[in-house]
Design a protein around this nucleic acid. Sequence first.
DNA 1: GACATATTTAGAAAAATATCTAAATATCTA
DNA 2: TAGATATTTAGATATTTTTCTAAATATGTC
Lengths: 97, 97
Amino acid sequence: MYLMKQQEVFKAMADPTRRAILKRLQDGPLTAGEIGEAFDITPASLSHHFAVLKHADLVRTERRGQYIVYSLNSTVFEDLTRMVLDLFPSVGSRGGK
Amino acid sequence: MYLMKQQEVFKAMADPTRRAILKRLQDGPLTAGEIGEAFDITPASLSHHFAVLKHADLVRTERRGQYIVYSLNSTVFEDLTRMVLDLFPSVGSRGGK
DNA sequence: GACATATTTAGAAAAATATCTAAATATCTA
DNA sequence: TAGATATTTAGATATTTTTCTAAATATGTC
């Protein structure tokens, strides 16, 4: 059922900078540089966070000329939501263990 | 809106042992010792994980004689679900930014 | 081709986390 | 109260993560 790398996804979500990156991408794709403007962090560190998010398959990338454009991968989000629900029996109200 | 400690919750969920602890509690409350049976880890390390889960308000505790009984706190879990949905606009289909 | 810009990779240092052993605390039973 | 069991706390160590600087790669422009 879960094709996603559960551990990678949860680890990716655990960092506040990465969650903020995801937030920024809610309104549409952005280049690495555009995302970085919001953070007081070097491009290298940011790039590391991108790598973690990509590894968890939470974002997709596409090169556009000099730029690399990042966008949310909403498919994995659905899996994540399901995963969270699965951890808490009462709310999801989906019977079996 | 979010009364929960977002960072604490995500951090708590990032560790596989802690997620497994939550899983074990799905079927009902268990003592620290009962939970520990499933893991190849010292009671001290386990206790550390309990502390993290408690700090995130994901579990509740109650002393019963010698034992300490742990149970899921499903209230916070609803917040968590909402939080995840909030990070991914397409899934929740809830308009605003 | 040379140079500028955008981004990533490599390698090191600093900070956070997970784990352990040993000791402390709480409760139970005799 | 003494001894046993259950759990946590303290302190140390090992691992992982975050961040940085410097260098490398890719693309665009002159």
